Simulated assay, not measured.
Amino acid sequence: MHFTSRLDGIAPAQLGGFFEGWPNPPAPATLHRLLSRSYRISLAVEEDGQVVGFAQAISDGVLSAFIPLLEVHASRRG
C-alpha cells in the first residue's frame, strides 16, 4: 500500500466500496469529482490500484480547515 495526495492515475472505478450504510451514497464518479475539487486529499492505495481509504479537507486557505470525509474500506478496518 502507498499513500498519495493526488488523483493522478486514479479512475472512478478505483473508488468503490465506500459510504457503507449511507442511505444515498455518492457514486464513484461523484466521489472522484468531489476529491478532485478538494483543498487537500490523502488516499491509501493498494498495489492493484484500488483505493482503500481517503480523507478530504476543505479550507479557506488562510485560517480554517475542516475534514468532512474520512473513509476506510470495510475490508481494511481494524
Rank of each mutant, 00 (worst) to 15 (best):
M1S: 14
M1H: 09
F3K: 06
S5A: 06
R6S: 14
R6H: 10
R6Q: 03
L7W: 03
D8C: 01
D8S: 10
I10N: 02
A11F: 04
A11I: 01
P12F: 04
A13R: 09
Q14V: 02
Q14A: 15
L15R: 00
L15G: 00
G16N: 08
F19M: 09
F19I: 07
F19S: 05
E20I: 12
E20V: 11
G21T: 15
G21A: 05
G21C: 07
P23E: 14
P23L: 09
P23W: 08
P23A: 09
N24E: 08
N24D: 12
P26W: 13
P26T: 04
P28V: 03
A29Q: 08
T30I: 03
H32Y: 14
H32F: 09
R33H: 03
L34M: 11
L34Y: 00
S36R: 00
R37G: 15
R37V: 00
S38L: 07
Y39M: 01
Y39A: 07
Y39Q: 02
R40C: 02
R40D: 02
R40V: 04
S42D: 12
S42L: 12
L43R: 14
L43W: 13
A44C: 14
A44S: 10
V45H: 09
E47M: 05
E47H: 12
E47F: 04
E47T: 13
D48I: 15
D48F: 08
G49H: 11
Q50E: 06
V51M: 15
V52S: 13
G53T: 05
G53A: 15
G53F: 06
F54V: 00
F54R: 03
F54L: 11
A55Q: 04
A55P: 01
A55I: 07
A57L: 15
A57Q: 06
A57W: 12
A57K: 02
I58M: 04
I58F: 05
I58L: 11
S59F: 02
S59M: 05
G61F: 05
G61W: 01
G61E: 09
V62N: 12
L63A: 12
L63D: 06
L63K: 02
S64W: 03
S64K: 10
S64T: 13
A65M: 05
F66R: 10
I67S: 06
I67E: 02
P68K: 07
P68R: 11
P68H: 14
L69S: 02
L69G: 03
L70T: 04
L70R: 12
L70C: 13
E71T: 02
V72A: 15
V72L: 12
V72W: 05
H73Y: 04
H73K: 14
S75G: 01
R76A: 07
R76K: 04
R76T: 03
R76P: 08
R77A: 01
R77S: 11
